[in-house]
Design a protein around this nucleic acid. Structure first.
Lengths: 344, 344
DNA sequence: TATTTACGCGACCTACGTTGTCGCACCCCT
DNA sequence: AGGGGTGCGACAACGTAGGTCGCGTAAATA
């Protein structure tokens, strides 16, 4: 293995080194990287491998406009080494259905080679002609499907790279309040995808406080020349729990007690609110009593609100009061706009 | 290519033919499949390839308990041919975060080789030691995260295979109403993953009507000996739109008109309700007027309810009435249980 | 413009890897 | 006990991978 004169393995390593299309890699660099991994071969051999062996059998392209030729894989080529099995392929299709509603198109596009691979397998499998797998699988997302914010492909690439390699980025950002473009140097500390909007958490210029930047409002991103300023003691989970995304979350879970309508009980018996959930029948009613330890956060409260008259929260009292107050406010709204309503 | 005496390519094809662990494939079968793809080689060569070349370089195992040896890949081995790039790896991590809340653990586990591959790449990349990528990325799911219904691994494998290959399955199903186990022969027609519960749509035994089966309540599934009875004219999308999953959906979209609080307007400007959405300022208020073409479905109504007092729906009138009635009912609840409340 | 440098590429040759064939051993089945 | 299916060691012939040399070319440098 150290000598590793095994041709096959060298080919495979080489194939793994060649980047997918937007990227490219020159022959000398490839030789270098190959050497790093224990394959000390002559430049000539590498050239032969590329231009005679691999490029005839694989969708590999060569940019020969400049002299150190640079090689790349076709953008959408994908090859799983243990080929996908049918269940995995189906899972991928399902996953794609879900993710399309959750992540920006560009980001899902990043994974398209995987998904197309799965689809190709399923297509091929139904050689009888009419399996029509595409019409057999659907994902119904949780909650209202909002349209994911569009974002720029290179922005995603630059920012994700910067985040992971701990490098600063220069960005042109379209501020929300003032509709003006601003220039910042960001030091990325984290990435949060909330619903369908992706936020970059970063410190700005020379300041030490974390700020949020919606990725879709970053107009241009480039790796910065500035030096990286590390930030210690930042914890993403604490940051989120602190309410930064509108999800103020109490440290301690609370015990939810509520009466729920039959259809809600049915739902909850399939997909519990928490591990500790208990459902018990109520006398003289088709409703059931629900008890569960749930996080003290906005999400849970919204879920309860969406259930509307189908749940009747008994505890915690604060939630009960909130829900009650909310209902009163809603009614108040509908009183005050009574006149306006008539115009529709 | 027809003669394809290229060793490398034969090796690769072979590697793609060897299934991942739960599966296994015997030498004669491999020879057969290889021949199908144009590689007519001697059995001896195949044996050498497997036992001397491939199994020394790859995590390949051999079950030699029976005489036609059967080969398989390590369960969690994964090899992308153009290796993953950093943005793709990060996307995979994000995707996994989301999917963990949406699909049953076993189903996500089906994709774990992909995800572990991504994680391995990120781990390796941060050779400086402390990139701690895992602490840098979070996905906050849309809506309340219910716990996905657990389901059996082999059930998923059998059923997905049956669905795609148009084969009937014999199942032991734990009925919801009566807590008894029932035996059916199902003819799978579709698969719907709703929130976190996965349903199989199938005709039962000799009947022609579609019924839903929660995958998590299928206790045992085996490919059936029965002959496949095709069902014509079934359209999954129509079926869902027809309200089968509690999402009765009007054929025509409706025009939603509402006044929304600033924070809701903020959210909607990032992730619109629909392509046609318009937000306009209201005089004498920080609220804004929202107009959008939205589907006439339960999801949208739930979303409006969750927004509570932060939206004031003006049209369609039916929704306005529904929301108002709901608020009144909620208040009524909280009146009637006033006494009970005090005990908490 | 002349010179240098860096690559790509064709050619050549040798060592070694690949592959078909044969024979033997083993196990299972009848 | 015998025969078919399979794994495996050995061997010889063929093919080819890979190091080396040298030329041509294009870009960089003086």
């Amino acid at each position: 293995m150290s000598d590793a004169r095994d041709t096959l393995f060298r080919y495979l390593t080489l194939l793994q080194l060649i980047p997918r299309y937007p990227g490219r890699m020159s022959t000398p660099v490839l030789k270098e990287k190959l050497a790093d991994r224990g394959f000390h071969i002559d430049t000539r051999s590498l050239q032969r491998d590329l231009s005679q062996k691999l490029s005839t059998q694989f969708p590999i392209g060569c940019d020969d406009s400049q002299k150190p030729y640079r090689w790349y894989f076709d953008r959408d080529f994908q090859c799983q080494l243990p080929a996908l099995d049918v269940p995995s392929a189906l899972t991928l299709v399902l996953a794609e259905e879900y993710l399309k509603g959750l992540l920006p198109p560009v980001v899902v596009g990043q994974l398209s080679p995987h998904f197309t691979d799965a689809r190709r397998l399923l297509d091929k499998m139904s050689s009888n002609g009419l399996s029509q797998w595409a019409r057999k699988v659907r994902a119904i997302p949780n909650g209202k499907a909002l349209i994911p914010a569009a974002l720029n492909e290179t922005t995603w690439q630059i920012v994700s790279q910067a985040l992971l390699e701990q490098k600063p980025v220069d960005v042109v950002y379209l501020s929300r309040t003032s509709k003006t473009e601003k220039h910042f140097t960001l030091h990325p500390q984290g990435l949060v995808s909330r619903h369908s909007v992706t936020y970059l958490l970063a410190t700005v210029d020379d300041y030490d406080d974390i700020r949020q930047f919606a990725m879709n409002r970053i107009e241009i991103a480039t790796l910065s020349e500035a030096t990286w300023r590390p930030l210690h003691g930042f914890d993403l989970d604490n940051y989120i729990a602190g309410g930064a995304f509108g999800y103020l979350q109490g440290k301690v879970p609370v015990t939810l007690v509520a009466q729920v309508a039959p259809q809600v009980a049915w739902l909850l018996s399939e997909t519990p609110l928490s591990e500790t959930q208990r459902l018990t029948s109520l006398p003289d009613s088709s409703w059931q009593q629900l008890e569960a330890e749930v996080p003290d956060d906005q999400q849970t409260l919204w879920w309860l609100m969406a259930m509307g008259a189908n749940v009747n929260v008994l505890a915690p009292t604060s939630w009960r009061e909130t829900l009650k107050a909310n209902a009163e406010q809603v009614l108040a709204h509908y009183q005050s706009t009574l006149v306006a309503q008539k115009t529709y």
